[in-house]
Design a protein around this nucleic acid. Structure first.
Length: 600
RNA sequence: GCGCCCGUAGCUCAGCUGGAUAGAGCGUCGGACUUCGAAUCCGCAGGCCGCAGGUUCGAAUCCUGCCGGGCGCGCCA
C-alpha cells in the first residue's frame, strides 16, 4: 500500500504533542501545518486554540510543546514564537527516510488509497455530431481524462463515458445541407477530415437559413430567428420533417444519419487519439433518449412528480429549495432532455452501482445539474452524495469569447496543428541539425503537453483566456518547463552512468537549501495528488508537479550541489535525489497525459 | 426580479473547511555560463485581497448589505 511519508512524519510529531495535551484534558488534536512565514521553519502549530482550555497563554503552551518536540530525532529545533510552535526538521535525518521511500514507494508516484475500492464513472466530452470539436471540448476532455487518471491513481475503478448527442434538430440541419449542397460527395472526395466535412455542411445550412431569414423580412415584423425557424421558414419545416422521419424510422433518413454520424465519430476518434484519451463506454442519445419515461411514471405514482393542468408531468422545485416547477414530461407525453438524463443516470446506477458519478460539463449548466441531482435524490435516495457536477468556466480567446453561432470558434484539430507548428519552429531553431522526424516528435510532445498543462493549471471554475504562445513556452509555470526539468535530470544520470553503483549514499550530507527544497517538494507531492483526485482539482496536480520541477531546477543550477565530482557518498546521495525527482516528475507528467522527453 | 460563479501585485492566476509579515508565473530592473543542458538560475521592486459593516484571540477565507463583471432561471439541448 502506498505510504504518504509526509503525513506519517506529521502524524508522528503530532502524536507526541497530542500525548502531552491529552494528559491535561480534552483538546482538539494538534493540527501541524505548513507555516506561512518563510523563517518559521518547516511545520507550525498555532497554540491559541488551547489557551482557553489550558488556562495558559499561547506562548507558554508553545514553549512547553517545544520542549516536548525538542528531543525528537527528526527535529532540529523547536521554538515558541508569538504563540506558535515552530518546528525545523533535521533534514539530514529526513533525507535518509525520504529518498529510499521516494525511489521505491508508489506514493511518490502519486498512488494512494484515497479512493480505494470505489467505482467512479466520469462522463466527459459529450460532443454533438454535427461539427468538429472545439477549444471548449478540449478543456472538457483534458479535465475529464485527468480526473479519471487521478481517480485511478487513488485506487478507484474508473469508467470513462462519452455521451454522444447524435440526434436532434442540429443533426438534421447538417443532413439537409448534405442533400442540398453536397452533390453526393464523401469526405474523401472533398478532401476534408470527415468531422470537419460535416461541420462545413452545418455552416452551409446556417448560411442558407440566414439568407432565407433576411430575405423574408421577418425581422422587420418583429419575429426573431428562432421563432421564424419554428413557424415561417421553409428550411425549418424541412428540418422538422426530417426529424419526424428519423423518429418514424424512415429508412433513407436513417441511412444518411448513420453515414454522417459515422463521419463525425471517425473524425472525433482521430482527435481523441491525438489527445491520448480513450473511453470505456460510449453512450449515444439516439439509444438513451427514450429512457426515463418509466421512471417518470413510477415517480408520479409515488408522489415525486405531479401532473399539472395542461397534462405535463412536473417536479416541484420547492422540494429542493429552488423556485418554480420543472417539466419532466411534456403535455403531449414526449420527453425532454431532463427525462433522458434521469433515465440514463438510473440505468448507470443499476448497471454499474457507482460510488461516484462525475459529469464534466460547463458552468452554464450549473442550474440544470442542481435540478437533475435534486430529482434523482428524490427518486433514488441512495445517490445522495454520489453525484458530482464538475463545473468549469469558459475558455476565452484573446479577442473575446467563443461564439459558435458566429463561427467564432477555435477548432481543436487546428489548434493542435498551430501549437505543433509553433513548438516545431522553436525546437528546430534549437536543434537545426537534428533529424526532422525527431524534431516533430518533440514538438508534438511539447505542443500537446503544453496545451494540457495550460488547460489544467487553472482552477476549474475559472474563466480564462487561452494564450497559444504561453501554452508552449518553456519559461514559467508551463508544461514544457516540467518536461525540461525531467530531461535535464536524465542528462545528469546519463553522464553519471553507474559511477555511484555500490556506494553508500551519505544522505545526512543533503543539507543545502536547494536539496531540502527538492525533498520538500517530493514529500508534498503524494498528498497534493490525492487531494486533487478527491476534491476534483486537477490544478493541484499541475502545481505539485511544477513545484518538483522548480525545486529541481534550483538544485540543478546550484554549483555547490553538483552530483558529478562530489565526494562519492555525497554524489550517490545527490544522484538518488535526482532519480527521485525524475520519478515523481514522470508520474506527474503521466497523470496529466503528457509525454516525458529524454532530450529537448 | 431570483440563483450561482468571479473580483487578490502592471498582466495572468493560486490561496477560500479561519492562523503570524497574503503567494506563484509573466513582465520590469539588476546579477550568474573555464564546471552535470543559461530553453536555466538568483535577487530587487511591486498589494486599502472590489467597498462597508459584523463574528473571532485572529478574516483574503465565515455572515450581512452594497458595487462591478460573467452565466443561468424553458413543456430547449
Amino acid at each position: 500500500m502506498p505510504k504518504d511519508l509526509h503525513a506519517e512524519i506529521i502524524a508522528d510529531l503530532a502524536g507526541a504533542l497530542n500525548a502531552w495535551l491529552s494528559e491535561r484534558g480534552d483538546h482538539p488534536p494538534a493540527a501541524l501545518g505548513l507555516p506561512t512565514r518563510e523563517d518559521a521553519g518547516d511545520l507550525t502549530l498555532p497554540c491559541h486554540p488551547y489557551a482557553r482550555t489550558l488556562r495558559q497563554n499561547p506562548q507558554a503552551i508553545a514553549t512547553q510543546l517545544a520542549e516536548v518536540l525538542g528531543a525528537h530525532p527528526l527535529v532540529a529545533r523547536a521554538e515558541a514564537v508569538a504563540g506558535f510552535l515552530n518546528v525545523r526538521l533535521h533534514w539530514g535525518a529526513v533525507a535518509a527516510r525520504v529518498l529510499p521511500w521516494a525511489l521505491t514507494d508508489d506514493a511518490a508516484r502519486g498512488r494512494s488509497d484515497a479512493l480505494a475500492g470505489r467505482k467512479i464513472l466520469v462522463e466527459y466530452c459529450s460532443p454533438n455530431t454535427n461539427k468538429p470539436l472545439h477549444l471548449g471540448h478540449t478543456r472538457n476532455i483534458v479535465l475529464g481524462s485527468t480526473v479519471a487518471a487521478l481517480a485511478r491513481a487513488a485506487g478507484a475503478e474508473v469508467v470513462q463515458i462519452n455521451l454522444i448527442n447524435d440526434r436532434g434538430v442540429h443533426i438534421c440541419k447538417s443532413m439537409l445541407a448534405y442533400q442540398r449542397f453536397a452533390e453526393g460527395r464523401t469526405p474523401e472526395q472533398a478532401g476534408r477530415k470527415s468531422d470537419h466535412y460535416v461541420g462545413d455542411l452545418y455552416v452551409q445550412f446556417e448560411r442558407a437559413f440566414q439568407a432565407e431569414f433576411e430575405a423574408s423580412g421577418a425581422k422587420d415584423r418583429g419575429t426573431d430567428k428562432d421563432a421564424y425557424f419554428n413557424t415561417e421558414s421553409a428550411l425549418g419545416a424541412e428540418v422538422r420533417r426530417m426529424l419526424m422521419a428519423w423518429e418514424a424510422g424512415d429508412a433513407d433518413v436513417r441511412a444518411l444519419w448513420r453515414t454522417m454520424n459515422g463521419w463525425c465519430e471517425t473524425g472525433f476518434d482521430a482527435t481523441y487519439t491525438r489527445m491520448g484519451v480513450r473511453f470505456d463506454q460510449i453512450d449515444r442519445e439516439s439509444q438513451t433518449y427514450l429512457l426515463g419515461k418509466d421512471l417518470i411514471a413510477g415517480g408520479l405514482d409515488a408522489g415525486t412528480f405531479e401532473r399539472d393542468p395542461s397534462g405535463a408531468v412536473v417536479f416541484d422545485l420547492a422540494r429542493i429549495g429552488l423556485e418554480g416547477k420543472k417539466a419532466v414530461l411534456r403535455s403531449d407525453g414526449t420527453s425532454v432532455y431532463t427525462t433522458q438524463d434521469l433515465g440514463t443516470a438510473v440505468q448507470r446506477l443499476d448497471t454499474h452501482g457507482f460510488d461516484r458519478m462525475i459529469y464534466v460539463v460547463g458552468n452554464e449548466q450549473d442550474h440544470h445539474f442542481r435540478v437533475l441531482f435534486g430529482i434523482l435524490e428524490n427518486l433514488r435516495p441512495e445517490v445522495q452524495g454520489r453525484l458530482f457536477h464538475m463545473s468549469y468556466g469558459m475558455v476565452e480567446l484573446p479577442d473575446g469569447k467563443m461564439k459558435s453561432r458566429e463561427g467564432k470558434v477555435v477548432d481543436a484539430d487546428n489548434l493542435m496543428d498551430d501549437l505543433h507548428a509553433l513548438a516545431y519552429a522553436a525546437a528546430k531553431e534549437r536543434n537545426p541539425d537534428l533529424d526532422d522526424a525527431e524534431v516533430h516528435r518533440r514538438a508534438e510532445a511539447i505542443a500537446l503537453g503544453g496545451l494540457k498543462f495550460f488547460l489544467l493549471k487553472f482552477a476549474p471554475p475559472t474563466t480564462f483566456v487561452f494564450d497559444k504562445e504561453r501554452s508552449i513556452a518553456i519559461e514559467g509555470e508551463t508544461g514544457a518547463y516540467c518536461q525540461y526539468a525531467y530531461a535535464r535530470a536524465g542528462s545528469i544520470l546519463r553522464k553519471l552512468g553507474d559511477a555511484d553503483a555500490g556506494v553508500e549514499p551519505d544522505y545526512a550530507a543533503l543539507t543545502l537549501p536547494q536539496e531540502q527544497a527538492v525533498l520538500k517538494a517530493l514529500l508534498a507531492f503524494p498528498g497534493e495528488i490525492a487531494n486533487a483526485a478527491v476534491e476534483l482539482k486537477p490544478n493541484l496536480l499541475t502545481k505539485a508537479t511544477f513545484e518538483v520541477a522548480r525545486a529541481f531546477a534550483g538544485f540543478f543550477n546550484c554549483n555547490d550541489a553538483r552530483v558529478i565530482g562530489a565526494e562519492p557518498g555525497v554524489s550517490a546521495a545527490r544522484a538518488n535525489l535526482v532519480r527521485a525527482a525524475r520519478r515523481s516528475l514522470a508520474a506527474g507528467l503521466e497523470l496529466m497525459g503528457m509525454t516525458p522527453l529524454e532530450e529537448m
